[in-house]
């Protein structure tokens, strides 16, 4: 076995990675070459000679890591459910209103005007949901006052 192969086996021995087959080859190599035993002592000495770093990580490293993780945490994803629910309610409301308006065109009543008046009451400061409820309430009130069709027409 050449010295380089033997040195590789010694390195693997030191790191605890020798397979049983490599172990047998190393033992045979060490028996055959006294210089290999010298090399082994050098490698063992090298591991002992290297000093520990004079410093280490900050004693509160874990706390600092946790703080950095908290600082880097992405903002929670926006919850679109309330917005979508409000949009759906509004669409339903407007759809109902449109249906109602089309059916009541002939009635010549003030229902449309009343609803429009309610809509015009809304401004940017009005809570959207509150406004929707107000509009809905107004719509029901108008519908109650003015039936969609006259029983006499049937």
């Amino acid at each position: 076995m050449n010295p380089k192969d033997l040195e590789q086996l010694l390195l693997l021995e030191q790191s605890g990675e020798l397979t049983p087959q490599q172990q047998r080859r190393l033992e045979a190599g060490l028996a055959a070459a006294p210089a290999a035993r010298q090399l082994r002592r050098e490698l063992q000495g090298l591991a002992r000679a290297i000093p520990e770093p004079s410093t280490g990580p900050a004693p509160d490293a874990t706390e600092k890591i946790l703080a950095r993780l908290a600082a880097n945490r992405p903002a929670p994803a926006h919850n679109w459910f309330p917005t979508l629910a409000a949009a759906a309610a509004l669409a339903l409301l407007l759809g109902s209103y449109a249906l109602h308006s089309s059916r009541s065109l002939d009635a010549g009543t003030g229902r449309a005007q009343a609803t429009q008046s309610a809509m015009l009451d809304a401004d940017e400061w009005t809570d959207p949901l509150e406004q929707e409820f107000a509009d809905l309430e107004n719509l029901f009130r108008v519908m109650a006052e003015q039936p969609l069709f006259d029983l006499a027409d049937l």
Partner: peptide, 28 residues
Amino acid sequence: YRRPLFGYLVRFANDPHQADEWFQETWV
């Protein structure tokens, strides 16, 4: 992993402070 990781990083850093910074960044 304090000793092995820092022991590796400090050999490439300009100073121990930078090694400490890398140590934390590695974990993050």
